[in-house]
Design a protein around this nucleic acid. Structure first.
Length: 512
RNA sequence: GGCCCCAUAGUCUAGCGGUUAGGACGUUGCCCUCUCACGGCAGUAACACGGGUUCGAAUCCCGUUGGGGCUGCCA
């Protein structure tokens, strides 16, 4: 196949949603696989519902997913004269006609047909009408004259089903191609644009399957070359209904804000309806290399957040901590104070201490938002000790002695363990060095720590939890060695003192 | 209602006439272990139903059922 050109043609009536993103992705990788082009066209002919912010969101979200158009974005609203030209052409050739039926009249016709249990279709009342000057000035639409010779059918080959789909023409009424306000309807504009833009393959949702025969008729009437068609099945929610807002997050931007990585989302979407043997993890390059229409599934797919989470955690694990710090700051910066994650103080520092925690936390989280939350004990000074938790682990005054010597141990640690020159997070070599010596520091802390414990005949198992509580206030945390490194001697000792005070208060209360 | 599309585990899927029906997510158990994870190992679970065609059907055909879409001066 040569000179492939595909397009993604959303209407800006909502944020880019998951289904749209997948359609865009399929179009993109299909075009790239054959060395062709992919373009973006915004179908903003519905002035009522189209909004600028949605246009921007669509373009930004695609960019975030690395789905980059090869040509300037096209807006249908800027091509109105083109649609008018072709409407006049059809009118002159009597392939279309003006319809003056009022909306009320049409509604009446419709209801009558429905009452008779018939398919609601336009009656063709204005088909043979020859409007005079006066009538032409009244509001009207333009309808396409469907070939009604009995037995005529319109069909096309669908590349995904690999079969012909035919519909009898008498199933299709004389549909509107130009609205009362002069705007083209979807079926009309889409055909003209796809033809004029030289789109060779139309890959779209199968909700358009029933529209395709109408469009085929227009291609023929306008004398355009016919593109190939491929209809991808839809994405469903867990209830089997078409995916929408009520199924939770449905826009790409929401996933971004919740801390999903673009490569995870793209990987998830490509596998939803398409497969390459048993491959699950696919980079954009892999997708482009392997993508084909044959392996696109015909049946609808249910969106499964668990698998997305799995992929997200997979990609998080692959990243170095400095990149993750950056990514976390990126999403929380945009969210500002209006986020759902409570008050988090400032951006994360791209230093070795933060990196140490992020490195050990990255196997423990599934989203970036979760990562940020798990860093709270580190970024905030105010540690809260929950009485219930302390009771649960039976923290009592007997531990005061332990914490006293533990504090001394921390204070006695070699300062060199904690000393790091600044890390340049944009320099690979600098990061690599820092991460390498970080390992050494952690190793040293581990050795010293174990020595300290065994000298006193204590074990890690019996002391780990109370130390964890003292340092973080939480039952769950990264490993203690990393925490000691990240907090540093001073903050560790402060927390030990605070925790000891807390034990005192608690036990004194019982004595009284 | 009419027309069109679809049908392998809870979910995503492999399979394209002969397989112990494969993989992944999830889930369960075990190992590792300072908590939680990661990781490793093991287990769990599917051809919607009924007719054909064929020596042989998850695979081909028909029907039933179920689901989805369209039926707008939305896209």
């Amino acid at each position: 196949m040569e000179n492939i050109k595909t397009r993604f043609a959303p209407s800006p009536t909502g944020y880019l949603h998951i289904g749209g993103a997948r359609t865009a992705l399929f179009n993109y990788v299909f075009a790239k696989h054959y060395g062709g082009k992919f373009v973006l066209r915004i179908e903003d002919t519905d002035f009522e519902r189209s909004e600028k912010k949605f246009e921007e969101d669509i373009i930004e979200s695609l960019k975030w997913l690395s789905i980059i158009p090869d040509e300037e974005v096209i807006f249908q609203s800027k091509r109105l004269s083109i649609y008018k030209f072709y409407a006049d052409k059809l009118l002159n050739e009597e392939k279309a006609y003006r319809c003056f039926c009022s909306k009320e009249l049409l509604e009446e016709d419709r209801n009558k047909l429905i009452a008779e249990n018939k398919k609601p279709m336009y009656s063709g009342r204005c088909r043979e009408l020859k409007p005079d000057e006066a009538l032409l000035k009244t509001p009207h639409v333009i309808r396409f004259r469907v070939d009604r010779n009995s037995g005529v059918a319109t069909g096309f080959k669908d590349l995904i089903r690999n079969q012909y789909i035919n519909v009898n023409n008498d199933e299709i009424d004389d549909f509107v191609i130009v609205r009362e306000d002069g705007m083209p309807t979807y079926n009309f504009a889409v055909v003209i644009d796809d033809a004029l833009m030289g789109i060779t393959h139309i890959l779209r949702g199968d909700d358009h399957l029933s529209n395709t025969p109408k469009q085929i008729m227009l291609y023929k009437a306008l004398g355009f070359n016919m593109p190939e068609f491929a209809h991808v099945s839809m994405i469903l929610g867990t209830d089997g209904k078409r995916l929408s807002k009520r199924h939770g997050a449905s826009s790409v931007n929401q996933y971004k804000c919740e801390g999903y990585l673009p490569e995870a989302l793209v990987n998830y979407l490509i596998r939803l309806g398409w497969s390459h043997g048993n491959d699950e993890i696919l980079s954009m390059d892999d997708m482009i290399k392997y993508f084909n229409l044959i392996n696109i599934g015909k049946s609808a797919a249910v969106f499964n957040i668990e698998k997305l989470l799995w992929l997200n955690s997979h990609y998080i694990k692959q990243k170095d901590p400095f990149i993750l710090i950056n990514a976390v700051n990126g999403i929380f910066e945009n969210l500002g104070n209006s986020n759902n994650y409570g008050n988090l103080q400032g951006p994360l520092k791209a230093d070795i201490k933060t990196a140490a925690l992020v490195e050990s936390l990255k196997t423990r989280v599934k989203t970036l938002a979760e990562l940020r939350l798990k860093l709270k004990f580190f970024t905030e000074e105010d540690i809260h000790y929950d009485e219930e938790i302390l009771k649960e682990f039976n923290v009592n005054e007997n531990e005061l002695k332990f914490f006293k010597s533990f504090g001394e141990f921390i204070g006695g640690l070699n300062d060199e363990i904690f000393y790091f020159a600044g890390v340049n997070a944009s320099d690979e070599a600098s990061k690599k060095n820092a991460l390498e010596s970080l390992k050494n520091s952690i190793e040293s802390i581990k050795n010293e720590f174990n020595l300290f414990l065994s000298k006193n005949s204590w074990t890690m198992k019996e002391k780990a939890m109370i130390i964890r509580l003292a340092f973080t206030g939480e039952k769950v945390s990264p490993p203690l060695y990393e925490i000691i490194f990240a907090l540093g001697k001073e903050r560790c000792i402060q927390r030990i003192e605070k925790f000891s005070d807390c034990i005192n208060i608690l036990t004194n209360r019982y004595k009284v």
